[in-house]
């Protein structure tokens, strides 16, 4: 059936909202092949059509061509949707993880997506640097309105030593609790090193 593989592609997207499953190279390839195939057939038929019009009682190929063309359009749409949504997901990850992706996510990307990611990363960094005259503003912190200056956090992993911006060094051990300035731990919370304790 036309469009089946494209449909599977979209279904895959739909089943994994907010995460990036491995890039489905195989299926994408199939959809592309289908498109090429349909376009070729249409080409062939449109040539035949010219002659049959001249011959008057030849077969009329227009409905078939239309149907195929609709198939091509639909497949393209699905392909674009698949890629666009992955890119959007990737974009969210840039904001969450910063410019270096965790290796398990990196493994799921196609090389083109990796390219896009590094490009996006650098354009975002460039924009953030250009915001104010002195050194820019990091927009990926301060994601939530600040409620208190210090927050209590629990360390979830053995992280080792961590230097605060005032120069003091903390030893972060699993299950240790700390009372730290919010802006210092925001990054670590997002990386899953800390858990914010809300009382």
């Amino acid at each position: 059936m036309f469009g089946d593989s494209a449909y599977t592609l979209i279904k895959e997207l739909d089943r994994n909202p907010g995460t990036l499953p491995p890039y489905n190279n195989e299926l994408v390839g199939e959809v592309k092949k289908e498109i090429c195939h349909l376009v070729q057939q249409n080409h062939a038929d449109s040539m035949a059509n010219d002659e049959s019009i001249l011959g008057e009682n030849g077969t009329n190929y227009f409905p078939t061509i239309r149907a195929r063309h609709a198939g091509v359009q639909r497949n393209l749409r699905c392909l674009l949707a698949y890629h666009y949504n992955r890119v959007k997901c990737l974009r969210t990850m840039r904001w969450e993880f910063g410019s270096i992706l965790p290796p398990d996510i990196k493994a799921n990307l196609s090389s083109i997506e990796t390219n896009w990611f590094s490009k996006y990363s650098s354009m975002l960094a460039k924009y953030m640097r250009s915001i104010s005259e002195d050194g820019g503003l990091n927009l990926t912190v301060d994601l939530n309105p600040p409620k208190a200056l210090y927050i209590e956090v629990k360390c979830l992993v053995d992280y080792g030593q961590y230097e605060l911006s005032d120069g003091s060094v903390l030893l972060l051990k699993e299950n240790s609790r700390h009372f730290l300035p919010r802006n210092e731990c925001e990054d670590l919370i997002r990386q899953g090193v800390f858990q914010h304790i809300v009382t």
Partner: peptide, 14 residues
């Protein structure tokens, strides 16, 4: 960037 991305992914098409 998006343009480039789509062009690259749709490569090999007619």
């Amino acid at each position: 960037g998006l343009d480039q991305h789509f062009t690259d992914t749709l490569k090999l098409l007619p």
